[in-house]
Structures are given as C-alpha cells and as structure tokens.
Design a protein around this nucleic acid. Sequence first.
DNA 1: ACCTGAACACCGTTCAAGT
DNA 2: ACCTGAACACCGTTCAAGT
Lengths: 234, 234
Amino acid sequence: MAEQTETVRRTPLSRERVLSAAVVLADVSGVEPLSMRKLAQELGVVPMALYKHVANKEELLDGMVDVIVGEVDTGAGGEDWKSTVRHRVLAARRILLRHPWARRVIESRTNKSPVVLEYMDAMIGMFRAGGFSVDLTHHVMHALGSRMWGFTQEVFDDSATAPAEIPPAMLHAMAEKYPHVMAIAMRADHDDESVVGQGCDDQFEFEFALDLLLDGFERLHEQGWTSRRRPAQR
Amino acid sequence: MAEQTETVRRTPLSRERVLSAAVVLADVSGVEPLSMRKLAQELGVVPMALYKHVANKEELLDGMVDVIVGEVDTGAGGEDWKSTVRHRVLAARRILLRHPWARRVIESRTNKSPVVLEYMDAMIGMFRAGGFSVDLTHHVMHALGSRMWGFTQEVFDDSATAPAEIPPAMLHAMAEKYPHVMAIAMRADHDDESVVGQGCDDQFEFEFALDLLLDGFERLHEQGWTSRRRPAQR
DNA sequence: ACCTGAACACCGTTCAAGT
DNA sequence: ACCTGAACACCGTTCAAGT
C-alpha cells in the first residue's frame, strides 16, 4: 500500500511540475479558487512540500506568469516595426485567450521576472529597430500598456447589458435611464439595418484599438515627435 | 458601562456609513487587508451586523466603487466633444489617484451598478453629441477602456528597474541582458543630454496616451469611418 | 538534514440559539 | 422579529517534532 503510494508519486516534485500543475488548475477552475492546499492535493503532496519549490504564493503566481509568457511565439516577425509589433502582440493574445486568468495575474504582479523583462526588452527593441527614439519609445510603451500582452481590461462589457433573459419591461426602463448604453448594446443605428444584441467581437475591438495606437505611434514618429511637445498640440 | 457602549454607537449603522468606512479603511491600508471582520471592528460592531446593509463582500466592493465614481466632478464640460471627454476623464483621474485601490476593484467588478452605468452613459453621450455614430462610438468606448476611469494598468513600471539601491555590478549585468529596458530606464538618449533614472511622470504618460487616442478618434470621425473598414486600412 | 503534522492567525458566511 | 455568538469550511504560513 505504502509502496503503491510511492509508485504514484514516481516523478519527483520540481518547480516546473508545480508551476505547470498550477497553470492547469487555473485553466480549469480559475485563479481565485486556486490555493496552495488544493494545488498540493492535485499533486498528491502535502501542502508544505510546495514551499520547497516556491517561496510563497506570490512566487507561485510569478512563476505561472512566466510559464504563460514563455508560451508566446516569438518567431515570425514582419517586414517593418509596425507589423512586427502587431504580430507579437497578437501572438501574445492567442496565448492569453487560452489562459483567461493570466490577464488578472499579470496585472497584479509588481516584480518583473527575467522572462517578463526579456519580453518587454524585445518589444522595445522592435520600436528602436524601426528608428524610434528612446524618448518616443518610452511613451509609446506606456501608451501600449497591458495591450502589449495581448489583452485589455474589458471595462465596457455590453454583453452584460445585452438582451438574453432580461424582461421587456426592464429593458424599457433601462433604455429610459441609460439611452446611450442601450443604443450601443442594441447596435440600433438609424442609417443601417439594426442587428439587435449581437454581443461584441472582442478580437475586432482589440485590433481596432491596437491599430489605432500603432497608427498614432507611426504618425508621431514620422513627425519627429519629442517629449518637448505634447501630442495634442500636434 | 453598557450604557456608555450604547453612547459610543450613537449613530446607527447604515449602508452609507458602512461604505464610507470601508473606503477610508482601504485608503489607509489598501483593499487586500480589508476584511468584513476588520471593517466591523472599525465600526464598533459585530461582523454579522454588516450583512444587514450589504449582502456580502462583493456587494461591499460594488458599493465602494459607487462611492468613488460618485465623487467624480461631472460639472464643467468643454466646448467640443474632445475637451468634454478629456475633462471628464481627467476629473475621474483626480479621484482615482486619491483612492489607489479603486483601480483594481473597478477592474474586478463584473456587474455594473446604476452609478457606473450612468457614468458610462454620460461618456457615450459626449461622443454622440459630437456627432459620432453609434457604431464608431461603440468601438471608441472599447478602445478607451479603463482609461475612461482615469487610470491605466502601469504594466511597464520602469521605476522598479530604476537606480535607487541597485549595486552597479547588477546594473551592468542588467544592461547586458535587457539593453533596451535599461536605455529607457536610464533615459540615455544620445542626441540629448541624458537625465539618469528620473522615474516616470505618470500624469504625462496618461495624457500622452489619452490624447493619442482622442486624436485617433477624431481622425476616424472626420473620415466617416464605419466598421465595414478596418482602421489599419485607412 | 530533510520532511511534515499540527498549529496559528486569519478569512467569509451560515445557522441556530438567544432576546 | 431582530440580533449575534459560535461554528463551519476554508485560507497561507510557521514551527516544532519526528525521521
């Protein structure tokens, strides 16, 4: 019996095994319910055994981010800086969409791991290779923000306001209180055949904003922008 | 003695008192350590007493966001849609900077409260009043994202990589591994007198990105953009 | 030296027992 | 009917006792 238990735990615990098990667990049921204790149980190990491979839960989360960032396809650039950046960001997005919890965790990390620094360094390098000044690149990276990881905080979630099971009386009341929100949720455009409550195409929204930013960056670069002048003042 | 205790609790508990106490507590020591139990203690009340005014901790957080959003100065618009939006966003930012925890909490909310819906409705209305189509406004709101609340996730935090107490040997090693990150952290521009590690001006970065977006929105609007065509394709 | 069970100091929330 | 103490089912992590 004790022997069989030994057999089950054949593969010894390692940082990698801990991290990938954590990623799988988060993929399956989210990060919030992910606990050191549950992770240990999943690995058939006593909770304290984890602390041999990660100092604490914070470091576990750091490691999980590294796993995800490591999955991003860094091959296949483009011809110019713009398509290179675009490709990398969309490659990151593909990974992030597979690990929805990663968005929140990446945002909560304060210490940048070597893996994360390397990713950012590469992205900065793309702008520099495109001839961007250190100055402009700096601001451009800030403007890009979390979009460089392929995600945005969807703070405008009209799918929640969308039709579904909402009773007509309530819809009517909402349309009176929040006419603009409802107009968008309903996509009721006068000069167009209205498609009611079709939800959002997140990928389209992401690329819309990404391209808007990249176009803006390009314009500033071409104008030889420096931080002496503000973008609003041309 | 029992009488005095009564006297101390003079003002009866109310939803408002619970929420504002929670906001104060979060301002002082952050949201993470904020617990129902500590909040109750702060109010001189048994933990369960809170549940008379908020259904659970989620609803407490919802309410806290409402308090913050309610603080945003909604007066004083501008002449055109652009300056109106700009003013509102920067007004929101002023409030958010006073409640640093609110950023994270706003992002974590999935249910939009009436207060939040009203804020978004007003913002959508600003674009609509500026002549924006429902279609364009929809995408523009997505592109604005959390920036409509006056904050961005500062995922590119070079203050962490900045000088401070980092030993020169380590700085040198980092400059070899992450040359681009360090170049930006050091602000070492060749064709300019280099100012070493001055940290970031968050307000400048915020306005830089905000204006970049607003300029982009304006351009699309003037071009009569519709979602049939993608922004990258002009 | 390594490993780990029990313990500590917390949580949010339920529930039954008190008034 | 209202209020609340105790309890439940969890946490992350420390630590001392076992091997």
